[in-house]
């Protein structure tokens, strides 16, 4: 198990839990209510995190995903 594969849990958790973590109007960021700015920030972070995972997957010698079995179980 490559630990970096768990990285996306952070943005996913931040987005799913945004109602508990960031349900505020202030501070406003670029004019946006804080809740909306929080969500926008983590959506952008999702892209960055997936790029990191993609790069690390591409660098590792093993195939990124185990080969699929041909036969149905």
């Amino acid at each position: 198990m490559r630990l970096y594969r768990l990285l996306p849990v952070i943005p996913a958790g931040a987005l799913v839990g945004s109602g508990w973590i960031a349900n505020r109007l202030e501070p406003r960021i670029l004019g946006l209510p804080f809740l909306l700015a929080w969500i926008v920030g983590w959506v952008v972070a999702t892209s960055v995190v997936m790029l990191i995972v993609y790069r690390l997957d591409a660098r590792s010698p093993n195939p990124a995903i185990p080969p699929t079995r041909v036969e149905p179980e």
Partner: peptide, 20 residues
Amino acid sequence: GAPAFYILCYGAVAYIMSYW
């Protein structure tokens, strides 16, 4: 109002899962 913001969130979560 704010409940609409969920629309922005679920896509990102779905794309994370789609990677695998």
